[in-house]
Design a protein around this nucleic acid. Sequence first.
RNA 1: GGUCCUAUCGUCUAGUGGCCCAGGACAUGGCCCUCUCAAGGCUAAAACACGGGUUCGAAUCCCGUUGGGACCGCCA
Length: 474
Amino acid sequence: MFNSVRVRFAPSPTGHLHIGGARTALFNWLFARHNDGTFLLRIEDTDRSRSTAEHINSIIEGMEWLKMDWDEGPYRQTDRFDIYRSYADKLMKEGKAYYCYCSPEELEQRRKEAISQGKTPKYDGRCRDLKEPIPDRNPSIRFWMPQEGEVTVNDLIKGKVIFDNANLDDLIIVRSDGTPTYNFTVVVDDVDMNITHVIRGDDHLNNTPKQIHIYNAIGYEVPFFAHLPMILGSDKTRLSKRHGATSVLAYKEMGYLPDALVNYLVRLGWSHGDQEIFTREELIQYFSCENVGKSSAVFNPEKLLWLNSQYIISSRPEDLAELVMPFLIKEGIMLEGRTIDKEWLSKAISTLKERSKTLVELANSLKYYIADDIEYDPKAKEKFLNEKNLPNMIELKKLLEKLDDFIATDIEKVFISFVEESNIKLGNIAQPVRVAVTGRTESPGIFDVLEVVGKEKTLKRLEKAIRMIETSKV
RNA sequence: GGUCCUAUCGUCUAGUGGCCCAGGACAUGGCCCUCUCAAGGCUAAAACACGGGUUCGAAUCCCGUUGGGACCGCCA
């Protein structure tokens, strides 16, 4: 039994935080929070040539955006080389590791040969019993893997998985330049950081038996393992750039809500009966490795989009007003630094919530509320802003001018009585007005639109439309 | 090629031997609501990969086949 749960997310900063990584992080985070444990962030940057500070920042930004807070770290493996060194020395001293003088080129050549002969490429162990160093060569350090027997991985998700030791390679734990390698650093760190549960992608399942042997050699108890199924693209191959956006921050820019992404990601592989939408609290309360599926899942952008629209619908307009602000500026709908009446904006948003699937869509719809002037959609203009509708528009404008309280219920009364008196359908007047005021054929209910746009702008826009029709008449 | 994982509607999944001639959700079609567009409601079509066992009984357990995926680096 362990005292308390300690889990970690250990990304390599060779790219942005992507969908797959984010889900791994999320499951770790949920597991920690559910068990009242500790969640740590560890940057695995031992590959110095491919790791960048920019990616570290981007990963952290992604984590923060998704509101997955960590209790310890971020640790960086490059800060911990002394620790790996001491463990490597210990293994050398105990005869559990040895110097290997084979050069990468030689190894590569032997590997190619093995493959061409149809054999499994495997290190032949030729340096194991070397008594004398080979001069003028910097050796790497290899771990002496047991050659007989088997290891079993007791996986919380996959169950019991048995590996034959004979298939395991003597892997390099320290490169010839003195830097440690992945399979060694993970074990040392997980031991050193008292990790109780290793939750990661199942692409690591095959590494696990090797790591277990390293745990044994170092003399530490192995943690629990949970290997998560992969996320695939629509063609069932590993999710990559080919499948569209894979960076978490790209979804931020496309106007997705972090909670929606989290909700979508958690349902890829995990379920709780038939429930589709969860609050964070529910996720933390319900999450368990037992309910994680074993098979890989295909990433489905349409369902994510639907979830996002659901989250927008259930958000408070005031909150959406804050969230949409950067998009209004980015889309050039609002000038940076210009102030806007928050209460009015919230009212506008409440009419738009259920027709916006993303914050970008919301911002674009907000355009006809905020802008001083509107542009007509050419087709809409042609169909509704014409001579046929002109008399009605003129008449309605007159009636609206007389209205003191420019609120939806009163506006509606004006429309209804006008429609009854002139014996036309509501649509016959609503659509031309809609185009005159929004420039489009689709919008929230016209009475609400007019109220939000306000009397002054409404009349101005109607006037403009009327004049435009009149001048084009000649 | 070797090793390992995996297999329910197009997709995400419920299902842990009888409650299942398989339920929910996205997407798709139809209808309702309606000033447009949505949202919402109703509804339709849509799956246990295949073959053997075990069992009174199998989507569920076992074996095989096939399909899919991952790993086999001085990458992580």
